[in-house]
C-alpha cells in the first residue's frame, strides 16, 4: 500500500511540472485559437536567461524578474510575426509557431551555449519524508505556484475587462472587433502573458530538471499532452491533464515497466482525442468552423 502511495506522490510531483507548462498552451489558445508550439521554448528561455543573469552576478530575484520580461518580449515578437503573416489561416500560424520554436532553440545555442545548467532553488534543498518517498520543497512550490496561476487566470478571464475581451476575441474575432475591442492589443497582451507564465515555469523547473537549449522540446510535448488531455482552453483542465499524465506514467513505470511509460501516456492522449475530443474538462460546444 505504501508503495502505491509512493508511486502516486511521485506521479503528482511530475504531473504538476507538466501542468505548469500546459497552462501556457491554454492561455494563447483561449484568445487566438492557435496552439503555440514554441511554448516549450518559452520555458527554456525563462530558465536559461535566469541562469545566465545569475552568472553575470545579478541577485536571484532581479534575474527572475528580468527573465520574465525577456521572455514576455519574445512572446510579443512571436505575436508581431503572426500579425504580419499574410496567410492567417490557423494551420499556417501553428506552423509559424513551430518554426519560431526551432529558431529560438538555434538562437539559444548561439547566445548561450550547448551545456547543461542548473541554479539554486528559491526554497532550499529540504524535503518531507512520506510513504517511503519524499516531497521536496521545490515540488511543493511548483504545486502552489501552478494553483495560484490557475486561480489568477480564472479570475482574469471571468472578471476583468481585458480577460473578457480575450474570451470574446477567441469566440468571434469580427464580432469582438465590432464591439470596439482592440484585437491587436488584446492578442499582444495575451502572448506576453503566456510567455511570462512559461518563464515562471522555466525558473521553477530548472533546479529540478536542469536546463539547456533543447530542454523545451520534451517539456513542450508533455505540456501539450497535458493541455490536450485536460481540454484545450481550460487552465484547470491543464492541471488535471498534467496530473493524469504524471500519475499514469508513474504507475506504469512502477507496476508494468519503465520502458512503456511514455508510450502508454501517449496512447491515453490519442484515446482522449478520439473519444473525448474536448478533453476531460473541455466543452465540445466551442467548436470553431
Amino acid at each position: 500500500m505504501n508503495e502505491l502511495f509512493g508511486f502516486l506522490l511521485s506521479g503528482v510531483t511530475v504531473g504538476f511540472i507538466y501542468a505548469l507548462v500546459g497552462i501556457g498552451f491554454t492561455v494563447i489558445y483561449n484568445s487566438s485559437g492557435i496552439i503555440n508550439f514554441s511554448q516549450g521554448e518559452f520555458v527554456m528561455a525563462g530558465g536559461m536567461s535566469t541562469v545566465f543573469l545569475l552568472k553575470a552576478g545579478l541577485p536571484l530575484g532581479v534575474s527572475f524578474i528580468l527573465a520574465i520580461m525577456i521572455t514576455s518580449l519574445i512572446g510579443i515578437i512571436l505575436y508581431k510575426l503572426i500579425s504580419f503573416s499574410k496567410d492567417s489561416s490557423q494551420i499556417s500560424l501553428i506552423i509559424l509557431t513551430l518554426g519560431f520554436a526551432i529558431f529560438l532553440r538555434g538562437l539559444a545555442e548561439v547566445v548561450f551555449d550547448k551545456e547543461l545548467h542548473t541554479m539554486p532553488s528559491f526554497v532550499g534543498d529540504g524535503s518531507f519524508d512520506m510513504f517511503g518517498t519524499t516531497l521536496t520543497y521545490q515540488s511543493i512550490l511548483i504545486m502552489v505556484v501552478s494553483i495560484v496561476i490557475v486561480i489568477f487566470l480564472y479570475f482574469f478571464f471571468k472578471k476583468t475587462k481585458t480577460g473578457q475581451a480575450m474570451m470574446a476575441a477567441s469566440i468571434n474575432v469580427d464580432a469582438a472587433r465590432l464591439m470596439g475591442i482592440n484585437i491587436k492589443k488584446i492578442l499582444m497582451i495575451n502572448f506576453a502573458l503566456s510567455a511570462a507564465i512559461a518563464a515562471i515555469g522555466g525558473v521553477l523547473l530548472t533546479p529540478i530538471t536542469s536546463t539547456n537549449y533543447e530542454v523545451g522540446i520534451m517539456l513542450g510535448l508533455k505540456g501539450f499532452a497535458a493541455a490536450i488531455i485536460g481540454g484545450l482552453g481550460n487552465p484547470f483542465g491543464a492541471v488535471a491533464g498534467g496530473l493524469v499524465l504524471g500519475i499514469l506514467e508513474s504507475l506504469i513505470a512502477g507496476y508494468i515497466s519503465s520502458e512503456y511509460k511514455d508510450a502508454v501516456a501517449f496512447v491515453v492522449m490519442l484515446g482522449i482525442l478520439f473519444f473525448m475530443p474536448g478533453g476531460i474538462f473541455g466543452n465540445t460546444k466551442a467548436q470553431r468552423v
Partner: peptide, 14 residues
C-alpha cells in the same frame, strides 16, 4: 530504464 529527457526517476528508484 528512463527516457533521456525525463524529469523525475523516483518511481524507478522506489
Amino acid at each position: 530504464t528512463y527516457g533521456k529527457k525525463d524529469t523525475d526517476m523516483t518511481t524507478q528508484l522506489l
